[in-house]
C-alpha cells in the first residue's frame, strides 16, 4: 500500500490551492483515492494559504496533513512553519527566488527551484506554482505525459483553452530545470 501526503504552503495569491488541485486531479485521472483540504478563513487574505493533498491506493482516513511526505514551500514563513513537520526521508521543495535560506534538516531530500524568477523570465508571471509542480512531478517520477495532458484538460475550463498549452509549457520548464 502506498500513501503520500503533500502539504502546499505560500502567500495567498501564489496559487497553492490550485497546485494542490492539479495534483488532486492528476490523482483522480490515475484512479487513485485522494483528499484535498484547503486552509480557509482570514489567514488566506494576504497571509499564509495552505492545502493538504493525500494520494493513496486505499481509502483516505483523516484528510488533515500534519506530517507531510512532501512539503512545497512557496515562501519563507511556510518553510519556517512546516520544515520540522516533514517526515524523515521526505521531500522539501522550495521556491528559491523567494526563500533565501537553505533547509536546515539533513534527513530530508531538498529541491530548490527559482520558480518565481523562471516564471517572470518566461513571461508567465502567474505560473510560478505550475513551474514548481513540473519540478515536483519530475523529481518524484510522476511526470507522466499522458495523465498530465488529461489532467490539464479537466482542470482548465474550455473557456480558457488557450491556457492549456501555456500551463503545459510551464510544467515542462519546471521539469527541465537542473
Amino acid at each position: 500500500m502506498s500513501t503520500t501526503q503533500y502539504l502546499f504552503s505560500g502567500f495567498g495569491g501564489q496559487g497553492v490551492l490550485f497546485s494542490g488541485k492539479l495534483l488532486a486531479y492528476k490523482g483522480l485521472t490515475e484512479g487513485k483515492q485522494l483528499s484535498w483540504l484547503p486552509s480557509y478563513g482570514p489567514e488566506m487574505r494576504g497571509g499564509t494559504a495552505s492545502c493538504g493533498v493525500i494520494l493513496s491506493d486505499e481509502a483516505v482516513g483523516s484528510p488533515i496533513v500534519t506530517h507531510p511526505d512532501v512539503l512545497i514551500a512557496m515562501n519563507l514563513p511556510s518553510l519556517d512553519r512546516y520544515e520540522d513537520a516533514v517526515v524523515p526521508g521526505g521531500w522539501i521543495f522550495a521556491d528559491s527566488s523567494l526563500i533565501e535560506r537553505k533547509v536546515k534538516r539533513a534527513d530530508v531530500k531538498t529541491v530548490y527551484i527559482p520558480a518565481t524568477r523562471l516564471a517572470s523570465e518566461h513571461n508567465m508571471p502567474k505560473l510560478a506554482n505550475i513551474i514548481l509542480m513540473g519540478k515536483i512531478f519530475k523529481e518524484l517520477n510522476e511526470f507522466n505525459e499522458e495523465s498530465i495532458q488529461a489532467t490539464l484538460k479537466k482542470i482548465i475550463s474550455a473557456r480558457h483553452a488557450d491556457m492549456l498549452e501555456t500551463n503545459y509549457q510551464a510544467l515542462k520548464i519546471g521539469a527541465d530545470f537542473e
Binding site: A24, L34, L37
Partner: peptide, 10 residues
C-alpha cells in the same frame, strides 16, 4: 463541519 464542507474528494 468545516472540513467536510471545504474538502474535495472524488
Amino acid at each position: 463541519d468545516g472540513t467536510m464542507g471545504q474538502m474535495m474528494e472524488p
